[in-house]
């Protein structure tokens, strides 16, 4: 079981400091939420963990070993999977080909147990396995993006706004799946705009603003709208 630790992480794009000294930890079987207004540095944090954003300070550790400076494909091959913003599925490939692509990062040889797991979690993908992924609805594409990330059997799952543009009913499906995924022992780091739902789902949520950690919230704080609003406006 692997845990993810972000320690005093800083990310800078030219003159813009997107993340400043952020520290957080995600343990196996845990969902950690990362919320905050646009431009708070949430996506940059995920990209820095993945090795596709310039880290200017601090460290990212998997089980105590630093992964900063590694290429995205190597981070993926160490068991960190990202569901990118905007889903980024391959519309011209079939659903099954998208899932097989997810196997690229697998660490053990196997004939696609991860794909079967994705189909178990999202049966709609099995029904449309030979269709081009571009023809799927937004909700189905999101499920495909999560299934694809899980195909390689990762230890850590990062999600960048998976509920973006989805109908409330589909958000229920996606968030329900996240709970199932973390219960199976994965460490889940969830970046979201839907603050209230995220706080309710996550074991712990961090509110980020201007690249800095502002507040830590527990599931019981989901009803405390005043605190949430205050954190966003602070």
């Amino acid at each position: 079981m692997t845990q993810l630790a972000v320690e005093k992480l800083s990310v800078r794009y030219g003159a813009v400091e997107a993340v400043r000294g952020l520290s957080l930890e995600v343990r196996p079987g845990e969902i950690v939420g990362l919320i905050g207004p646009n431009g708070a540095g949430k996506s940059s944090t995920l990209q820095a963990i993945m090795g596709s954003a310039p880290v200017t300070g601090g460290d990212v550790k998997l089980d105590g070993r630093s992964i900063v400076g590694r290429r995205p494909e190597d981070v993926a091959r160490r068991g960190v999977a990202l569901v990118p913003e905007g889903r980024r599925i391959f519309g011209e490939l079939t659903v099954e080909e998208n899932l097989r692509l997810g196997l690229a990062a697998r660490r053990k040889r196997g004939n696609g147990a991860g794909i079967i797991r994705a189909y178990d979690l999202f049966p709609v993908l099995l029904e449309s396995r030979s269709r081009h992924a571009g023809f799927l609805s937004g909700g189905q594409q999101q499920q495909l993006a999560i299934g694809r990330a899980l195909a390689a059997d990762p230890d850590v799952l990062l999600l960048d706004e998976p509920s973006l543009g989805l109908a409330p009913k589909i958000v229920d499906v996606v968030f329900g799946a996240l709970r199932q995924i973390s219960d199976s022992g994965l460490a889940v780091l969830l970046v979201e705009q839907r603050a209230q739902r995220t706080v309710a789902l996550a074991d712990r949520s961090y509110v980020l603003a201007n690249g800095e950690l502002r507040l830590t919230l527990g599931p019981d704080d989901a009803g405390d709208t005043d605190r949430l609003v205050a954190a966003y406006l602070a």
Binding site: M50, S52, R71, P72, E73, A76, R77, L82, P84, R88, F90, L101, G102, A104, A105, R106, R148, A149, A152
Partner: peptide, 10 residues
């Protein structure tokens, strides 16, 4: 970019 994130070696 996305292919690399999925573990495809550039």
């Amino acid at each position: 970019r996305t292919a690399r994130i999925l573990g495809v070696r550039a």
